[in-house]
């Protein structure tokens, strides 16, 4: 009878493990958040404007054409750097966690997760390029938030539930930022910095703490 109960438990775990990528590390979220905060701080210091209104439509409108291009280029470079650093650190921690759990990083579930997120993300990226092309740089901050939120929502089917709520939060924040255009940097910092750190910490607390010390355990055996 104990054997049957164990069988049921194993079945449940298999069903979850095979359809969802559960090695997503909370530390990935935290590191992405920290990188985003550093990026925001760099932008804030470089543009030397007050925290709230930097990046607003009005502010950029006051710049001359040269200054505008300079700021444009600087912002795009910083954003790309933040993206690359956040992705690299995020991947590192998740790969590490998967190794610790004795699981493969590249499996059907992770492929589905990546694909589910890639479609909205690439769409959002191209959308932002169009915005920049039309010199609507101030619109890119809310746009990245909204599309990132949609990507998370779409990807959450293939990973832990928390990602779904993070997705809703990002979408809500992005939509709010669309109308409160004066606070772009602030919203962006909350969305990519604060929220990542909050959810990352919560996920670390819930899922990683227990698995972290047990290295090399193979749960499939």
């Amino acid at each position: 009878m104990n054997e049957h109960l164990q069988t049921l438990t194993e079945i449940r775990s298999l069903m979850e493990r095979s359809s969802k990528f559960l090695s997503l590390s909370g530390l990935s979220g935290i590191s992405a958040g920290v990188v985003a905060m550093i990026g925001s701080a760099v932008v804030y210091m470089r543009l030397r404007t007050d925290w709230l209104t930097v990046l607003s439509y009005d502010r950029l409108g006051q710049y001359g054409i040269d200054r505008f291009h300079e700021a444009n280029l600087f912002l795009i470079k910083t954003a790309l750097l933040v993206l690359v650093a956040a992705l690299a650190l995020g991947t590192f921690f998740t790969v590490r966690k998967a190794r610790q759990q004795g699981q493969r990083v590249w499996n059907q579930a992770s492929r589905r997760l990546l694909w589910a997120m890639a479609v909205p993300l690439v769409t959002g990226g191209i959308f932002c390029l169009a915005l920049i092309h039309y010199r609507l740089l101030f619109m890119t901050a809310p746009t990245t938030l909204v599309f990132y939120g949609l990507a998370l929502l779409n990807g959450s089917k293939y990973t832990v539930r928390d990602v779904e709520y993070l997705g809703y939060s990002e979408i809500a924040l992005g939509l709010l930022a669309l109308f409160l255009t004066g606070y772009n940097l602030l919203f962006w910092t909350i969305g990519f910095g604060v929220l990542h750190i909050l959810y990352g910490t919560a996920m670390y607390w819930k899922y990683d703490r227990n698995t972290a010390p047990k290295t090399g355990v193979n749960p499939t055996s």
Binding site: E16, T220, S221
Partner: peptide, 26 residues
């Protein structure tokens, strides 16, 4: 138990290839 495990993986995934099953079930 192996057959039960195979079925439990296949009911939650639309389809799964041989190597995927092999990795999951060891």
């Amino acid at each position: 138990k192996a057959r039960l495990s195979i079925m439990s993986v296949l009911v939650v995934n639309e389809s799964m290839n041989f190597n995927g099953l092999k990795d999951l079930l060891a």
